[in-house]
Design a protein around this nucleic acid. Sequence first.
RNA 1: GGACCGGUGGUCUAGGGGUAUGAUACCUCCCUGACACGGAGGUGAUCACGAGUUCGAAUCUCGUCCGGUCCACCA
Length: 900
Amino acid sequence: MTDKMIPKEYDHKKEKYWQDKWEDDEIHKFIDDGKKPRYIIDTPPPYPTGSIHMGHVLNWVYIDMIGRYKRLNGFDVLFPQGWDCHGLPTEVKVEQTHNIKKNQISRNGFRKLCVDLTEENIDLMRSQMQSIGFSQDWSREFITMTPEYMKRTQYSFLKMVGKDLIYQGIHPVNWCPRCQTAIAFAEVEYESNDTFLNYLRFKGLAKNKKSEDGVLIATTRPELISACVAVVVNPEDERYSDIVGEKVEVPLSGNEVQVIADDEVDPNFGTGAVMVCTFGDKTDVSWVKKHNLDTIEIIDEKGIMTEAAGKYKGMNLNECKLSIIDDLKEQGCLEKQKTVGQNVGQCWRCETPIEILVKKQWFINVNKLNTDIKEATEEINWIPEHMKSRLINWTDSMQWDWCISRQRIFATPIPVWFCKECGKIHVAIEEELPVDPTQNNPIAIDKNGNKVDYICDCGSTDFQGEEDVLDTWMDSSISPLSIAGWPEPNYKDYFPADLRPQGHDIIRTWAFYTILRSKALTGLKPFKDIEINGMVFGEDGYKMSKSRGNVIAPDEVISQYGADALRIWAANSLPGSDLPFDWKNIKQGYKFLRKFWNAFRFISLHILEDEIKDDIKLEPLDKWILSKLNKLILDVGNGFNDYNFATTINSTQKFIWHDFCDEYIEAVKYRLYNKDDKCIESKLAGKYTLKTVLDTILKLLTPITPHFTHEVYSYFFKDKIEYIQNTNWPIINEEFLSRECENEGNIAIDLISYIRRFKSSSKIPLNQSLNTVNIYTEDEQLITILNQFKNDIIGTLKIENITIKNSKPNVNQKIVKVSPVMSKIGPEFKKNVGKIVQCIETTDPEEIAKNLKENGEIDIEGNKINESCLNIEKELVGESGKKIDLLNMDSLDLILEIIR
RNA sequence: GGACCGGUGGUCUAGGGGUAUGAUACCUCCCUGACACGGAGGUGAUCACGAGUUCGAAUCUCGUCCGGUCCACCA
């Protein structure tokens, strides 16, 4: 042990010192020499917004605990950190900051501004992560906007094109008019609000009677009326049976459309007649396809009405809606308006309502991969298990292919050119990656292996580079492949990853896409375990969000209570369960560390000067705490292996605070302060035990509170730094793992706390000695046990004289109550329990006790009940001497006579 | 509308066939040679509701209500 001054109080400000030391000494580096088994973590690459939030803290504390736990268990851990850079928010931020629009400067210029902003944000977030003590190997950092990462993303595109899984096509796509790009279904979120359902009269054009009234349709989107291509009714709906097949006239536009029948129409909604517009929603798309209807492009990319809208051209959607409603009213076509609730799909990044436009886009053929995805999903170990069904459900609900092209700038370019002569698509070759086709012409490799200009089959060398870029999820969905070094041939040494930790909000995106890509590119599942963490709620019980004003920044907590306290809060939870933020829990963690620090200071006073030897004769109480310690090693290990973090931290805290500090340390103090040479052995046993417990629990706590344990551990050494992170996880010592030692110790602890309580309630100061304690019991086993613990009992309680007598004191014990022990009686007597319990409760307790004493059991209608099935409450009766207290313990069958 | 998770002392929580764990808050007492930023006690829960299975249900089954999350979506 060191002679360094140990401060009276633990200073969490020292956390920074350890973070820097770890970084300088690279103790979290992935060695990769093949000497240790590898453990690969597919760390989430967050979007570089500039600050991390409590959700990140929860997710990364889990990752970090596992990483540190695995390192202590002899694994070579790859814990990289990535950044998912591309995407709209950064573009928007750049546009705001520089007050420009993306089209006002060159693509490269705009891209450069995005890169600069992203780098700044990564720097900020990296240092915030370090301030929580996360143990990433920063030499393995990956950034999706770097050329080397983009090369992998583009290569994965090439590979999937080669497997016929990617195609370009003209399809309706979800379109964000604000971002002016296509988005995937996974990026559409639904918001509910109220709107008007408008009832519009379409004039019938046939000459028969039935069609005179035409048809009344109900729509929430009258602004699309000029794009109406049909009216649909349910084939079973008798109201419309005569008009099906007839033509009707669309109000305002005057177009003639046909009334068709389709059983997807709900006759009970609105009027049971629907106008199909291109495109109001997803059902419109399917009707257009099914009935081979026209499409009328009425909205442009910016959400402005086109030529096809006639007089409404140039208006935005809302202006158009108001104007059309006015005109409909004027013409008498609007028969009524009714408020209805609806869910509007909107862009998940900017919350603008999405439109469905028909566009030429790139798609991944999801249907070809669905079976593979589900197969891999089943092979993966989901924690918690029930999260698996979310992915299965999502996969089953896939209707459209994944649209992977975006009409933006800051993203990985799609490595494709179009021949300006013949229009043929040319996909880049591996050798020219990474490439931005808007900046470079395609190349080819000639017979001699030299790079030459690519010539189209038609002979042209004039190419138009694809301006569309890839969906950001195309970058992040290869993260486990990228960290494994794919497509290097040895990537399978690092793939599939051992662990994918992530939130449940991105199961349908990140988890789904990663599994899809991994199966498509390698045929393998991307990871073995997927741990899904819950969301962080504010103190008010709702999801933390700026709009609710319930956000607490991690920095705020760290500056007040330190990163370890924050980590304890996060660790006290389970994967899959949402976790409310709670200052009380943070403080509780902080208090725990303070308590442990004080215990450490006490221990250090006693193990400072001596060499602690191993071959020592332990006292029964030492064996008691050591048995509990070994049980703790088992529990904590199981907790980490099963991702049951709450159990881990709870059982550790309970052990340290109560078993160790409150009971063991108190009971062993007298030995440590004893100057008598005769007691040297038990003193050394105490020191050995204290040292062993301290040493072990530091290791058990290191994954959770690494700063604290490194600080404490550093006092074990004089002039050098040894990292506890570089030691080994404690091995369970089977010899000490003994239920018997624990039970016997519990008896002694019970007795000690009972007498302590007596002192306390009798207002005797705890450090004042007791003249005499006589223990009376007729239980011989109990006598043996108490004799073993005699010294510790005397010492702890400062008892001058103690006797343990196999007899009764000169008083009477009265049996006041006998009650059944259900856990014993239940399983043994099953159906007869009712009678037995009733009998016990109605019989005089003294009589039961008498029977029990005489026969060793009682007989209730043939059922033999012995003492272990009964709880016998006794009371002492009789005069106790003035200075003598007689106590009857509930939990142990003994009587105490105490002379003060 | 569908799926999943949950409803346990004032608050949060463990457990998941034998009447309940811990934390926090509150109350009482105690400065004992690591710690009053501590310790010892105490009050406080018919485990959402209803029915069923069982000798016995917080625990299993079914139904209801409430909360949360995800998904779908009606024009």
